[in-house]
Design a binder for these strands. Sequence first.
DNA 1: TATATTTACGTAACCAGTTACATAATTAAT
DNA 2: ATTAATTATGTAACTGGTTACGTAAATATA
Lengths: 316, 316
Amino acid sequence: MSFFDTVGKFAVGSRLRLLTEKITEDATQIYNMYGIDMNPKWFPVFYVLSRGEAMTITAIAKEIGHSHPSVSKIISEMVDKGLVKEKKDKTDGRRNMVSLSAKGKEITGKIEEQYTDVRNAIEAISANTRHDLWNAIAEWEFLLEQKSLLRWVQEQKKERESRKVKIVAYQPAYQQAFKDLNVEWISAYFKMEEADYKALDHPQEYILDNGGHILVALYNDMPMGVCALIKMKDPEYDYELAKMAVSPAAQGKSIGWLLGNAILEKARSLGAKKVYLESNTVLKPAINLYHKLGFEKVVGRPTPYERCNIQMERVL
Amino acid sequence: MSFFDTVGKFAVGSRLRLLTEKITEDATQIYNMYGIDMNPKWFPVFYVLSRGEAMTITAIAKEIGHSHPSVSKIISEMVDKGLVKEKKDKTDGRRNMVSLSAKGKEITGKIEEQYTDVRNAIEAISANTRHDLWNAIAEWEFLLEQKSLLRWVQEQKKERESRKVKIVAYQPAYQQAFKDLNVEWISAYFKMEEADYKALDHPQEYILDNGGHILVALYNDMPMGVCALIKMKDPEYDYELAKMAVSPAAQGKSIGWLLGNAILEKARSLGAKKVYLESNTVLKPAINLYHKLGFEKVVGRPTPYERCNIQMERVL
DNA sequence: TATATTTACGTAACCAGTTACATAATTAAT
DNA sequence: ATTAATTATGTAACTGGTTACGTAAATATA
């Protein structure tokens, strides 16, 4: 079974399953050794009932981490063996109050020695290991409780993909991409306006030559995102963030976030104190991104764009 | 699910099962995230086949630690999906040579990124733990490979029970037990002889007064084992170990071993250099015990007992 | 008070593995 | 050259869990 050595941690799941099986394997024989007529799978149920109080099926299930049908089945097997007894709750007709029978209670006495021997055996095994399985399990349970494995993997994927993204300065070769990416979303949600055509057809003239900047996000050396920083003639703002567009084909690679940060960094390096932008609240993901980038809503400024219904600023 | 906190390590098995489940749970979604149409349970099979060589069902099963029917089922599912192809071995008609189809090979390329992301995710989780789950599993696998959990528990049981055994010096009150325990095995395997009756009916006179000693093993304060050390008039041997008997009702508590060691210790404290004994090879467990106690076979000595067919000595 | 929602629980169907068993092919031993 | 033992595999039945679903009782709400 060299499998795990070569496949590595990708297969923790499989490996855990095999270990679980190996540990569980001997359980029946261990019960036999102590002369206790009990199916190992009954144990968690037996254990919680051995505290003496009658419990409902669901309460047991919750406590031992099984589904309720599982407990339901276990209980009916235990009833057949005469280990537990059922009783309908008088005040709540749905409840099936389960408790140990006399025969079941008898076992609680006999089983004590088994508990201590098994616990000691496990301690003895642990004493022979350098890594503590019990605590490791507890830690994993806790971490996966906070964030599922799926989420952990998602984060890795995003990070890896974002590493493939390169942010570079605008070059004439990117003019077409700069236009296309913007036309895509503008015409999908609104209507292209005169000012759009000017900036997108002639970025050199209308943006760069006026002291503005454009950054391009490359994914596999293809331009998949663009963003402009336009010099403003305004006593309050130095630059406007505009014409940000990311290809829908390159979603989930944090391109917007990387571009946004890069453009703010650029503004900072140019000595800007505040960056301004205009947008529309129908563009939920965009607004969301702006918030994440630190932009906050402002009011009462004139704008040449019809589609603008929200204005934001970011203090650097 | 406070269960595990109170029951403690007795339930490692259950706890492992739940963790395994939790980890496995997200697997399907992770495959989806990468657009790979594969059932997670196929993965180990897929992985070993992705090395390119055609393999038999049993070879795969052995490598991934499953039973062969499990692999057989997985393969037929994968064949249905067109991921693998089967081919009868020409030189051995029993063999079903399985290998990845073109479609299967295609996945090997796509899945690479998933591998690294999942591995990195697990590394990231591990980086947040103080105890290393992966290595802990490996250590447990190794230890349980050497000795099953059943055996570990058996040892604990034996040790606990042997701690309940007290070895005490003979007193007249134990004469009946001394006789009964010996009569039990002697008459079961052989016939009581004259010398037996003398020693068992009058231990004071025939053993103790002649410079011998008797030790009694108490379990719950009941005499469950006896053993005599008889002074010999012999140039070679100082004492003979004889009349050792342990109640069949007290098996598995190491009473024989404890008695044997105690009696050898006694001999040592009396300045003996060699202890002698006579037995019969039909008494396999007894001979076994003598070996464990360090006795070795000797030949060519006269004996008053008909039933003796083996003689042993222990150099102190 | 009538109605909608929630809760408790049993049953059925499924799932991913297992063991047990049957069969065919190969290999070893007389 | 037989015969016995071993090996490779598939099928069936079992196991210990699950989810899905239905029903009845209790609780919340309009």
